[in-house]
């Protein structure tokens, strides 16, 4: 059980977290969703004992986590956003270095290395230098090095940045297996698809505040609208956009407009208006609201802004 109580963390130019409180249950796959600079990584660094908060405290099984509480740190494995590996040495040597810091004995360390490298499909490459690995392989090794000591809590700070879909899916599979094996996982991302696939509960964070939290369904249900409407960008005149805006909140994407309808909108009246304006039905799509829509609805900004 992780209890984050009234955490505030300030940096010279910004307040990264402002009086944040939340609870994460054991064995939960918890998502922290927010745009860049929202405070996700700061919260992860506090949870991992890398940073200390200015006020408030974080308890893990009732014990305060801080940079100097080395015992509590053993319960945590952080998968950093960057590839925190020594490129000029082999995968096994990396694992030995990081495993030894957790006090693993030689024999159990050797066993753990073999097990984790097998899990991420890198056992056959254990003698190869990391610099010869592809981006996806490095990401997998980055994950393996973080769970070598079999932590109770795995913190994943955007662990799939910059990799191909295949490697991303592989990492998702490993994390799901870890969660099934009883590990608590906290996962930060600004990709809604990732949160939607992996997380049983999500907190949306922006400018250092938790702005919404719950299961995926609870969050979607909290929206005034039950569908979102996308319209292809074939109709970009002011007359058209004014018409769209009369039905709800309109956001401008690269290839289309997205409309979050006002409460009580009848689709029949919307389609009638479109037809009268000469807009083809094929240009219109009705979708289930996503986390992206939720974030837009809450903040008026895109997750990737």
């Amino acid at each position: 059980m992780i209890s984050i109580q009234n955490i505030t963390k300030k940096f010279p130019s910004v307040t990264a977290l402002d009086d944040v409180s939340l609870e994460i249950k054991e064995k939960e796959f918890f998502g922290l969703l927010g745009p860049n600079g929202a405070g996700k990584s700061t919260l992860m660094n506090l949870l991992a004992g890398y940073l200390d908060s200015d006020s408030g405290e974080i308890l893990i099984d009732g014990k305060i986590i801080s940079s100097n509480n080395l015992e509590v740190k053993k319960k945590i494995g952080l998968v950093p956003q960057s590839l925190a590996l020594y490129e000029e040495i082999t995968a096994q040597e990396n694992m030995e270095i990081f495993g030894s810091l957790f006090g693993l004995e030689k024999s159990s360390l050797r066993y753990a290395i073999a097990e984790k490298l097998n899990m991420v499909g890198l056992f056959d490459r254990k003698k190869d230098k990391v610099q010869t690995f592809s981006g996806g392989m490095k990401r997998r090794l980055n994950l393996a090095a973080s769970i070598l000591h079999d932590p109770q809590i795995v913190l994943c700070d955007e662990p799939t940045v910059g990799i191909d879909p295949q490697s991303r899916n592989a990492i998702f599979d490993y994390l799901e297996k870890l969660n099934e094996a009883g590990k608590t996982i906290i996962y930060t991302t600004h990709y809604m698809e990732e949160a939607e696939r992996l997380c049983s509960r999500v907190a949306i964070i922006d400018f250092g505040h938790i702005i919404s939290m719950g299961t995926m369904q609870q969050l979607i249900d909290s929206l005034e609208f039950k569908q979102t409407i996308t319209i292809d960008k074939n109709y970009e005149t002011e007359r058209h956009t004014s018409l769209f805006k009369s039905f709800g909140l309109l956001t401008d994407h690269e290839n289309n407009y997205e409309l979050m309808p006002t409460d009580g909108l009848k689709l029949s009246s919307f389609f009638t208006a479109m037809e009268e304006s000469g807009i083809s039905y094929s240009s219109i799509n009705i979708k289930k609201p996503s986390l992206e829509s939720l974030f837009l609805n809450l903040t008026g900004r895109s997750l990737r802004d």
Partner: peptide, 9 residues
């Protein structure tokens, strides 16, 4: 970061 999130000060 990785080292400091292990039991290392």
């Amino acid at each position: 970061l990785r080292i400091l999130t292990s039991p290392v000060s």
